[in-house]
Every structure is written in structure tokens, then in C-alpha cells.
Amino acid sequence: MTSATPALRVEGLSRHFGSLKAVDEVSFEVAPGSRHAVIGPNGAGKSTLFALVAGALPATSGSVWLHGDDVTLLTEHGRARRGLVRTFQHSSLFLTATARENVLLALQRRHGVQARPWGAVRRRRALLEEADAVLERLFLHHRAGQAAGALSHGERRQLEVAVALATSPSVLLLDEPAAGMSPADTQAFREIVLGLPSKVTVLLVEHDLDLVFGVADRVTVMQLGRHLLTGDPDEVRASDAVQKAYLGAEDTSELFVDEEGA
């Protein structure tokens, strides 16, 4: 399972803010097609790590590898063009554009027509059909003509993923997708993540452990900017070090309740 080139590899990645080491020498690998989650208590450096991987923040040291290529020096849009595409923690959409246009913005870039000043977008049948297919996958087809600003919170998170998915990413980075979601929305979102195409590798930075243990096949735990452990969900659940990280030495049985029966 580890013999293949990892879809994403992080090597000794660090980011310092003055004397604060927000991310400190973190290394781990994400296997192709995996559903990999990064968890950790508040202040563990998850968000900074996410920004470093996405290219939104330059690293102090270390490197990021995408399918065996060093992408450390690429900008955010450069990485996006290589297939490393992120979503945003607080829904970041084109609010006055319709849901369909949001997806189209990603699609037209992929098709290389984003700078073409002629020919109505509305008459590009192939693009439109592809956009509607993406929306349908995210259960948003019935909202295609609505302005993104008019969508509900949960729908915006879905559209957020739709826009990222439309770029045809090989690695999809999800930044705390369940933040601010109701339990029902989170449950629905879980279905969406599980329904993503299996060839897309997913790296998920998430607070909500229900969601993480419901979708992830691999989990990396961070603490105080450091990499603590990477393993499969059972290993992580059983780990003493993880329990300590989350609650000091307390019992963590409540933290890792099975979400079955919800």
C-alpha cells in the first residue's frame, strides 16, 4: 500500500511566526485515493499546516510533494493547476453568481477558456452539462440557478466542494468542512465525502471527530505544531499519546463516541 508514489507528501514542513513555531518539522504521506484526516486540539497548527499545503502561506522550511513532484515553490494557483485544490473553512464563494456559475468559473479555467472575451458562457453546452453534472453529484442541481448568496449554510458548503471538484483535482483539500454545521448537515456532508470519486485523494483537516472517524481511512494527529501520530482510525483511537494530547491524561471514551445510532 505504501509502495506507490504518495499522492501527497509533506517533508519536514515548518512555519514560524517569529518565535512561535506554528508548524514544526511535520512529515507524513497521503496515499493515492485515500481519505486522510488531520486532527488535533485547538492550536495544534492544523490551519497553518493546511495553508502551507495549499500554498496560501509560504513555508519557513520543508517541502510539499504532489505525486512525486516538489511543489513547494509553486503559488496557490500554480498548485491548483497541478490538481492540488482546496476548499475554504468559511465558505468562500462567488456570492452574486449563481451556483452554476460558481462551478463554471472552475470549469472554464480547466478548459482554458477563462480569458476568452467572446461567445456567451450560456451557450457553451459542454461546459453547462458538466457543471450540472457536478452540481448533481453534490445534490445541488435543484439550486443551480440560485445566487450563491441565497443558499443555506449547508448548501454553501456543498457548493464549496462542487467548485473545488469542478477543477478535477487529484488531491482535494477540505478545510474544516463541518465548521458551523448542524449535526444533520454534518451527517449529509459525510455522505458527500464518501460519495466523492475514488480516484480523488482527499485530505481533510477537521475538528469534528464524528465526521473524521466516519470517513477517514487514515488519520494524522497534530499537537502543538508537531506531528504526533499517523495511523488508521483504530490505532488513533487506541493511542495513549492521542488521549493525552486531547485531554491531558483523561479518559477519551467520550471524545470518540461511535457515531452509529445518530
Binding site: 503559488t75 462567488f94 456570492l95 456559475e101 476568452r116 461567445g119 458562457v121
Partner: peptide
């Protein structure tokens, strides 16, 4: 045109367009 949509995207959310 597609470029027009790009410009509206630039207005709405430049960061996302970059992403």
C-alpha cells in the same frame, strides 16, 4: 463571455479564484 464571468469572479472573491 467566459472572460466576463472571470471578471465577476474577481469582484466576488479573488482569493477563491486563485484557489
Amino acid at each position: 463571455s467566459p472572460f466576463g464571468l472571470t471578471l465577476r469572479g474577481l469582484r466576488d472573491n479573488e482569493g477563491r479564484l486563485r484557489a
